[in-house]
């Protein structure tokens, strides 16, 4: 079996006295779409943010393609922060997409996508903008290149945000509830871009309440509840014959809302 894209080992995250993640062990396979589902406050977003090193885990390790990110941990449990440059290098293999898009409002769509190419990768302005434009074409927004975020719809902003992450040629894409702050009619355009990406074989980790997306595109489903990973398996195991009572209960709330036809 090949090396997992991301290996999470015994990950514990505490915010002050509150423990949000209770020792998570999870392998994210290469080239597949992994979905993290669970009720609000289950810790799925925190787990994803730990994978992007936006949260510092309290204990445990995150390994990207065999290289430890953030903190190394000895067998005795002594944690040591890795150099910022090392973490930046490892993190550059990861693209992150946020619930709130987080585009920089003072830059156009093209500016947002080309920014890191220019400042981090020291590409010339023209090369960076050509590459950025290609990414905007990919998400269907070449005609909006000169628009500022405030002039774009939520769905368009999120597609620019995806293009911004893709421009850096990441090996793994993380999505933190990418459609949760969108009007229902705008979620489709974002999910379509994500479907295309999945079809290309991109390794993806998606935290989402879009159970339909998880069921149709997801290849590995992990169910979290109260900071514990209760179940990881193929979509068929999760959605057609859930054996975990808590998972069954969670899915029922979606089936009640008519998602059954999607599954």
């Amino acid at each position: 079996m090949s090396l997992p894209a991301i290996a999470v080992k015994n990950l514990v995250k505490q915010f002050g006295e509150t423990t949000v993640l209770h020792g998570i062990d999870l392998d994210i396979p290469q080239g597949k779409v992994s979905c993290l589902i669970g009720p609000s406050g289950s810790g799925k977003s925190t787990l994803l943010r730990c994978m992007a090193f936006l949260e510092e885990a309290t204990r445990g390790t995150i390994t990207i393609d065999g290289e430890v990110l953030g903190f190394s941990e000895s067998a005795q449990g002594v944690r040591e922060r890795l150099p910022a440059a090392t973490n930046r290098a490892i993190r550059s293999r990861i693209g992150m997409v946020f619930q709130q898009f987080n585009l920089w409002p003072h830059m156009t769509a093209l500016g947002n996508v080309s920014e890191a190419l220019k400042t981090v990768h020291k590409m010339s302005r023209k090369d960076a903008e050509d590459l950025a434009m290609a990414q905007l074409v990919k998400v269907g927004l070449e005609s909006r290149a000169g628009h500022y975020p405030a002039q774009l719809s939520g769905g368009q902003q999120q597609r620019v945000a995806i293009a911004r992450a893709l421009a850096l040629k990441p090996k793994i894409m993380l999505f933190d509830e990418p459609t949760s702050s969108l009007d229902p009619e705008l979620t489709g355009e974002v999910l379509n871009v994500m479907r295309d990406l999945a079809a290309e074989g991109m390794t993806m980790v998606v935290v989402s309440h879009e159970i339909g997306f998880a069921a149709t595109v997801g290849q590995q489903i992990s169910f979290l509840d109260q900071g514990k990973l209760l179940f990881t398996g193929a979509p068929s195991d999760v959605f057609r014959k859930p054996r975990n009572p808590r998972l069954e209960q969670f899915l029922d709330t979606y089936l009640d809302r008519g998602a059954s036809m999607l599954v």
């Binding site: 992007a52 936006l54 409002p105 945000a161 911004r164």
Partner: peptide, 13 residues
Amino acid sequence: PVGHIEAAQCVGL
């Protein structure tokens, strides 16, 4: 918004 800074960290700034 702290997210604007996080987005910049994620692309390597």
